[in-house]
């Protein structure tokens, strides 16, 4: 099942989502971010998947956020299912969703520093330290 891809500017994001809801796309299935570190400008691309069960159609919405403020408006008021996904995107990539009711970390601990799924966040950079084990330099 191929989904129709819409590349839209950041300013039209919320209005497009609203119009999609009115077109009969009842469900927001997925929201994720792609980090195009040193490959594309601006860096972060938001990818949202919509599903219309009545028309049996899918649509993919893609937009880039500005590098300066990394913020985009939240769509939780239109699709409540975006709640967890936006929190995950904030947690993993540091994207700020304006007017999100509860924008906190969801998978990582609250006091975690950094955003793990960014491309410049190396995996294995934090050595695993077990409790009271002798410290390794």
């Amino acid at each position: 099942m191929n989904s129709e891809i819409l590349n839209i500017p950041l300013n039209d994001y919320k209005t497009t989502v609203e119009s999609l809801k009115n077109e009969g796309f009842e469900m927001m299935m997925d929201l994720t971010v792609v980090d195009w570190f040193r490959k594309k400008e601006p860096r972060f691309e938001i990818v949202v998947q919509f599903l219309s069960t009545s028309h049996n159609k899918r649509k993919t919405l893609k937009t880039f956020v500005n590098d300066e403020d990394l913020s985009i408006s939240s769509i939780t008021d239109i699709y409540p299912s975006a709640n967890f996904y936006e929190r995950e995107a904030f947690d993993m990539f540091g994207i700020i969703f304006e007017n999100h009711p509860d924008l906190t970390r969801i998978l990582m601990p609250d006091d975690w520093v950094g955003h793990p799924l960014r491309k410049n966040y190396g995996s294995g950079r934090i050595p695993v330290q077990f409790k009271n084990a002798p410290k390794v330099d």
């Binding site: 939780t76 709640n83 509860d102 601990p109 609250d110």
Partner: peptide, 22 residues
């Protein structure tokens, strides 16, 4: 003592009306 640091995710009272409505 050190092993009791509970996950520091915030309690419910921080939530606003919008979140409760959802």
């Amino acid at each position: 003592i050190s092993s009791t640091d509970e996950g520091s995710q915030k309690m419910l009272e921080n939530e606003n009306e919008e979140q409760i409505k959802i």
